[in-house]
């Protein structure tokens, strides 16, 4: 089964059709597209410099031209939220990429080759997976030192065993199908079989789960920054804004509320899109993977 245009285009047609009927799918797609848009065009969209301090406007409430108000050193919250979107997306894409590029091959090999290699990899994966994810991520950041990049690395490391397990499961089921035997019979090389036949079979599951993991990555990077373990000030990361701004909650809630809403919508958007993709690509997967 080669990954042809039909394989990819077909489900998308279903997806678009579905989006007309399913509001959540539409919501998800809108949010995610919106986020990409905001991330790419942040410099153009943001009305002000997110790092520009103006102590005259400390904690000033929303007003004309500044719909989200000012933060505790007079920076425009809207601009910061916009740039925060860029950072959130970068964090999500980077960390998930780590998982995909390292976890996928490991999962493929582990599942396809089996044997001792598989056992070792699975043991390691299982123990990592059973560990509470926040604790794991916090621990990694603790070791490496708090920073935005280290947070991304930590989340990436968290995602690797998840991808290994995912891809391995897919591989195991694909391995048994006849076309693999056919490929072997024609003498195709091992690597070729894996990448040209097995991998495309995992593609849809990968896509669905990655979308959901993107949402989780946003949540985790926000959580880390909230704790002060991720993006450091003055970086306009959403979680950091909430974390640093919470002492002003009583006086100027807008400083915290807007980033919170942004985080919530972003996560929900990715989850909704992930669910919609799952339904479009394979309804049987529903409930199987609780991202």
């Amino acid at each position: 089964m080669r990954l042809s245009l039909l394989n990819v285009a077909g489900p998308f047609a279903v997806l678009i059709g579905r989006m007309r009927r399913d509001k959540m799918a539409l919501f998800g797609a809108t949010v995610v597209t919106g986020l990409f848009f905001v991330a790419i065009f942040a410099p153009v969209l943001a009305p002000y410099d997110p790092l520009l301090i103006d102590l005259n406007y400390r904690l000033a409430p929303p007003e004309q031209g500044h719909p989200f108000g000012f933060d505790w050193v007079g920076r425009d919250v809207l601009s910061r939220v916009i740039y925060g979107g860029r950072l959130a997306l970068i964090a999500a894409l980077a960390s998930v990429s780590i998982g995909v590029f390292i976890g996928t091959p490991l999962g493929l090999f582990s599942g396809y080759i089996g044997g001792k290699l598989d056992t070792v990899i699975m043991r390691a994966t299982d123990s990592l997976l059973s560990f509470p994810y926040l604790l794991l991520v916090i621990l990694i950041v603790a070791l490496l030192g708090p920073s935005f990049e280290n947070a991304i690395l930590a989340i990436g490391i968290w995602s690797i065993p998840n991808y290994i397990r995912l891809v391995r499961a897919s591989t195991l089921s694909i391995k048994e199908r006849e076309f693999i035997d056919a490929a072997k019979a024609t003498g195709e090389s091992f690597l070729s079989i894996i990448f040209r036949h097995v991998f495309p079979g995992c593609a849809s599951v990968l896509l669905v789960q990655s979308t959901i993991y993107l949402g989780r990555a946003i949540e985790m990077s926000a959580a880390l920054s909230f704790l002060g373990l991720g993006a450091q000030p003055p970086t306009p990361e959403w979680g950091a804004m909430v974390g640093l701004g919470r002492i002003y909650l009583q006086v100027s809630p807008h400083v915290v509320i807007f980033p919170c809403i942004a985080i919530f919508i972003a996560i929900m958007g990715f989850n909704a899109l992930g669910d919609a993709l799952r339904d479009a690509l394979d309804p049987r997967l529903r409930g199987l993977f609780r991202g």
Partner: peptide, 19 residues
């Protein structure tokens, strides 16, 4: 609820019930 990060919820709760 599954989409709300825990700290967001905590902050909201703090805001509503304590502030």
């Amino acid at each position: 609820a599954v989409c709300i990060p825990i700290f967001v919820f905590g902050i909201m709760l703090l805001h509503l019930l304590a502030v």
